[in-house]
Design a binder for these strands. Structure first.
Length: 250
DNA sequence: AATGTCAAATAGATAT
DNA sequence: ATATCTATTTGACATT
């Protein structure tokens, strides 16, 4: 997993060692001040470049369009690199901007389209497929893996956006439907109201019907107040219907 | 030069 | 233990 090391930018820095410092702990990999690989002022550093990293990061080997110049700018010579490992010394101040520490690769059109083709076939790769594809593309397996990860993330994001749009439309349609039904309900209520006798419009709780004589009784209705102009007149001498206390006969 | 966008890369969380 | 997902950072490039 050494190739996955973020501090493994191909340029391996160590204090006095030609090899890689212990970077097995992934938590130490971020390029932040706590990263053990980061330069401390004035320290004499050893810089090593593996051929693997070189292959992945050097335009001639990888991407003619990418502008990976800094590797060359730091004085790393290709012949030495091809001899597997090269160690050069530089002062920390030379590495200060450490822009070369994480050079970003840009995939060529050919690489991208091949990756896209493979992705269409399978959105994930098994280790064997990854190896083969990496070889085909002249990339490190890790780069292929990362590309697939990001590609899956993009696909998912796109799908989420599509889903979101569908739900939005669905919501709008339901809102419209709800509005329409509310309106329809109002209209039906209005029709019902106009077709219902006034006494039937009274709240049900105020009325009761005696099951025996079937006369209508208003719980709190004072019949004397029902004037001649009233639409209907309650039984002049009504009795209150009490469901549980009504005598056998009226 | 400032800013925005895209995508590669990283780190940590989660799933298997 | 390993693979995958997710959020984030970062470098390259385009646009203004």
């Amino acid at each position: 997993m050494a190739e996955d090391d973020p501090c493994d930018t191909g340029l391996v820095l160590g204090l006095g060692f030609g090899g890689k410092p212990s970077l097995s702990n992934p938590k130490h990999r971020r390029r932040d001040p706590s990263c053990p690989n980061q330069t401390s002022a004035g320290a004499l550093l050893t810089l090593s470049l593996s051929d693997d990293a070189f292959t992945a990061r050097t335009p001639a080997f990888n991407n003619p369009l990418s502008t990976v110049k800094k590797e060359m700018d730091v004085g790393v010579d290709q012949e030495a690199m091809e001899a597997d490992l090269v160690s050069i010394s530089l002062r920390a101040s030379d590495e200060e901007d450490d822009g070369a520490a994480r050079k970003k690769l840009r995939l060529t059109k050919e690489q991208s389209s091949l990756l896209e083709d493979r992705f269409k076939e399978h959105s994930t790769l098994n280790p064997k497929q990854k190896q083969v594809l990496a070889k085909q593309l002249n990339l490190r397996p890790r780069q292929v893996e990362v590309w697939f990860q990001n590609r899956r993330a993009r696909t998912k994001l796109k799908q989420t956006e599509v889903d979101c749009e569908v739900l939005k439309r669905c919501c709008e349609a339901l809102t419209d439907e709800n509005r329409r039904l509310q309106k329809e309900l109002q209209e039906l209520k209005a029709i019902k109201l106009s077709a219902t006798p006034l006494y039937m419009q009274l709240p049900a709780a105020t009325l009761s019907i005696c099951p025996s004589c079937e006369s209508l009784a208003g719980a709190n209705v004072d019949s004397t107040k029902a004037g001649a102009g009233s639409a209907f007149v309650l039984a002049p001498k009504h009795h209150l219907y009490k469901p549980f206390s009504h005598p056998a006969t009226c």
